[in-house]
Amino acid sequence: MGLLSKKDAKLITDPLADNNPITIQVLGICSALAITAELKASIVMAVSVLFVLGIGNVVISLMRNIIPSKIRIIVQLVVVAALVIIVDQVLKAYAYELSKTLSVFVGLIITNCIIMGRFEAFALGNGPWRSFLDGIGNAAGYGLILIIVGFFRELLGSGTLLGFKVLGDPIEKTGLYAIGYENNGFMLLSPMALIVVGIIIWVQRSRNESLIED
């Protein structure tokens, strides 16, 4: 049996693939696209959402029986906003440069549909431990897509990964650049994020035909 029962483990593994929040549920796309030009920013964003969604789901789940349903949206917004302020202050204190790159998109975690969506759909009807697992699972599914998009955009756009020159030096013409390879600067522009996500959806749905919409 171990730490997780089969049902609980499914809560984590499902959102990673067949119920992915970005490609299947269409939630949380706003922030997913804007900050994925670098792998580092994508990872930081994924970790921030993991923190906010994990803790937020537990808090909402603990309060689910005392929140009047008429004002639940405002209550949820206040909980998320408080958690996001913590993330923002920590980033400003320990990674100031990065928080400048992410600019307003840290604040936009508040209105990230993933978070409100999981609160509404799961945390309001389930206990804290299951809500925690659901939060972690969905944030991981979100982070996975973010990291894939960030990986390709940084690799093809500037030839680096996390700032390391993995393809050689474009100015001194070493590595791949020696045989005439060029960086595709277009990958760094924002429209390419949309197209990369479109391609991920394409690949995923070709592999699993039950996901195809009509």
Partner: peptide, 13 residues
């Protein structure tokens, strides 16, 4: 496989 969401993403791009 592109119907619905996928093609919408690419058109938006």
């Amino acid at each position: 496989a592109l119907r619905g969401l996928g093609i919408t993403f690419i058109i938006t791009g």
